[in-house]
Every structure is written in C-alpha cells, then in structure tokens.
C-alpha cells in the first residue's frame, strides 16, 4: 500500500471506531425518513399548484435542508474532534505530510458520505412513495441520476465542512461558518441586492453552495462543478493553514 492509501485506511478505521459516527448516520436516516414521509403530500400539492413536475425525489429534496447539516457535522468532526482531543498529535506523528493527511480525510469522508447519502435518499424515496406515487411521474433513469446527484451534493457539503474544520479547528466556529455559508450568505446577498438595488448581488447569491446544489440536483452538471470548486477552495485554504500553523 502506498502512503496515501495507508493514511486513508487509518482514517476509515478511526471514523468507524467512534460511536458518534453511527449516531450521525442513524440521525440523518431518521430525519430523512420523517421529513420525506411527512412532507410528501404538501410538496406534491405545492409543485402541482405551480405547474411543476412531481418527481420521486421531490420530498427527499425537502429533507436535504435538514440532513445536510448532519452530513456537514460528520465531515467537520473528522478534523475538529482531533484538535479538541489533541489526538491530532498522534495523527500527525503517523502521517506527517499535511497534504497527504487532508487528502486521506477528504477521500474517506467523501466516499462514506456519498454512499450514506445515496442510501439515505433511496430510503427517503421509499418512505415518501406511499403518498407521492399518486402524483409522480416515474422514470428509472432520471431517478437514478437524481439520487447520484443528491449523494454527491451531500458528500461535497461534508467535504466543504471538513475544509472549514481544518481552517478553523474548533467545532463551534466551523459549524457556524457552515451554517452561514449555506443559509445566511444567499439570503443576505439577496437582501443586500434589494436594498442597494444591485442586481449582480443576486447573481452572486445564486452561486453560493446551496442554490448551486439545488440546480445541480435538478440536473445542471455545470453547477456540480461550481459546488466542487467551493469545496476545493475551502479545503485548500484549510490545508494551507494546517501547513503554516503549529499543530
């Protein structure tokens, strides 16, 4: 095994050997099942009323607003829990290359959250199906594409949060930043656009992670690249800080 693969194997072992990982996974699943089942009817009626197509993932997309923060927390904790417990010292003793360590964490968190995200959305579709199937138009190819995009979205949010965790090192600060980036930034920019009468701020708001993610899930591949760029830039900034600052 090369050095990166060894570091990734260690990260995977660490991720699955703490109970909180499984609590997060269970929490995300339960949240998604509840929201998808309970929101199914309202979502379908709302979409119908506005002449929009009802898809099998429509209710799951509603659930993402809630579930993405759990995925983000999981990604962030892969770094911040190590600073909080000082076990980062042991991790860096084993893998002194900061670049290799961050890449290993990104790979493990990305792959895990992608698979978990896919599973959560498939089960979410199943949970909403009893109500939603009276409204939806089912296209197996389209559903598969949507679910893959949702899984990728959740994985990218988790990696973005991992980058914030590397940048800020503390859970509270990183989580606040994640919340601000996802929810506050687009609304704030839109508000500013109205009060300053500056249209370009609306355009800017449309390129923040969540609106970009919505368009990506709706089938816009280019938006997926913008979201990937967000995650890549934040991770790169975190890596830079990790290399410059003492552990």
């Amino acid at each position: 095994m090369n050095a990166l693969a060894r570091a990734a194997a260690a990260e995977w072992l660490k991720l699955r050997s703490v109970r909180s990982t499984w609590w997060f996974a269970g929490g995300a699943l339960l949240t998604m099942l509840l929201v998808a089942a309970l929101e199914a009817k309202d979502t379908a009626v709302f979409l119908r009323k506005h002449g929009l197509p009802v898809e099998p993932v429509s209710s799951v997309v509603e659930g993402l607003d809630w579930v993405q923060l759990i995925f983000g927390s999981l990604g962030m904790l892969a770094v911040t829990s190590e600073y909080a417990t000082r076990s980062i010292m042991v991790t860096l003793a084993c893998t002194p290359s900061r670049t290799r360590l961050v890449l290993a964490k990104v790979a493990v968190v990305g792959a895990t959250t992608f698979l978990a995200g896919g599973l959560v959305s498939v089960l979410g579709v199943a949970a909403s199906a009893p109500v939603l199937r009276r409204y939806w138009e089912f296209d197996a190819g389209q559903v598969t594409g949507r679910i893959l995009a949702i899984a990728a979205y959740l994985a990218l949010v988790a990696v973005l949060a991992l980058g914030l965790g590397t940048l800020i090192r503390r859970s509270a600060g990183a989580l606040t930043m994640l919340f601000a980036l996802l929810y506050v930034l687009p609304i704030g920019l839109q508000g500013l656009a109205t009060s300053l009468n500056a249209e370009f701020l609306n355009t800017l708001a449309a390129y923040t992670p969540m609106p970009v993610g919505e368009r990506f899930i709706a089938g816009e591949a280019a938006s997926g690249l913008v979201l990937t760029a967000w995650a890549a830039v934040v991770v790169a900034a975190g890596l830079w800080v990790m290399r410059e600052r003492d552990a």
């Binding site: 109970r19 010292m89 003793a93």
Partner: peptide, 26 residues
C-alpha cells in the same frame, strides 16, 4: 514518541486507537 498521554479520542477504545496507528504505518 509519547508527548501527551491524554491526546486520545475518548470515545475510541485503546485497541482501535493503536490499530489505526498500525494501519497507517503498514
């Protein structure tokens, strides 16, 4: 090296802590 004995994730068993280190070194 042992620089700080308490620098271990409290939720992880001692054995898993060592296993992760072992894996990272091949």
């Amino acid at each position: 090296a042992l620089l700080d004995a308490k620098a271990v994730h409290p939720a992880r068993s001692g054995r898993d802590h060592l296993r992760a280190m072992t894996v990272s070194q091949g």
